[in-house]
Amino acid sequence: MLLTVDHVTTYRYSQPVRGVVQTHRLQPTAFDGQTVLDWQITVTDGIKGGHFRDGAGDHVQAWTIQGPVSEITVTVQGRVQTTDLVGVLRGHRERTPPQCYLQSTHATDADMALADLAASANAGAGDLAAAHRLSALIADTIAYTPGATHAATTAAEALALGQGVCQDQTHALLAIARRAGIPARYISGYLHATEDGTLHEAAHAWAELHLPDLGWVGFDPANRCCPDDRYIRLGSGLDAMDAAPIKGIARGPGTEQLDVHLAVQQSGQ
């Protein structure tokens, strides 16, 4: 599938800030399931910083913006050719040992309820069937409900609520997978939403679990599927904050207001 992305993020500050430092994981990496045809990122008044590929294979690009500045716009435009690999991340160049992704974080710590949930999946074998069971379990226990949670909600809190968005469902899946001894990581990316409304959230998140023989395999509990050619994979991490496409720190006392416009569309050749 040929997908075009048009993604504009605007930061507005209540009073001008002295400067902003950002780090981006905003550029899809190549693997057998996705080929980047063209990709452009601009930051208003931004000075391009260092670029490198991290151990997980992600493109990381640093930016600095000199103040005083009261508005910053990050624009992403690009085209990606995708292929359905039923979730398998084949041909992705990366170095970080999968065991690193057994480490828990505040957002993904398993409390008693999550530990019980993990145990109920009987995922000891750590195989593909077990991974599917874990993902289904999250879809069954945390209902997709926008507005019920916020950016800092933890996996344990979302499970207690029984509600959440893709970020919460992914955190919860990471928590129970790691608990079952399966390395698991957070993926941030884009999703081409279908016209009938069965798929939602163009700015999307899902999980990858590391399985024997298959390596990293994606699971999207929000849509009860494995990522296919409607998905564009941007970057990974231990949790949402670690994998965030844009992270930044502004110097100054002002409050920040965020505005996002995103369109992911299928283009006719």
Partner: peptide
């Protein structure tokens, strides 16, 4: 120092 690790990792 915000951003130090990116400078370090890109060899600066």
């Amino acid at each position: 120092v915000p951003g130090l690790m990116d400078v370090y990792r890109s060899g600066g």
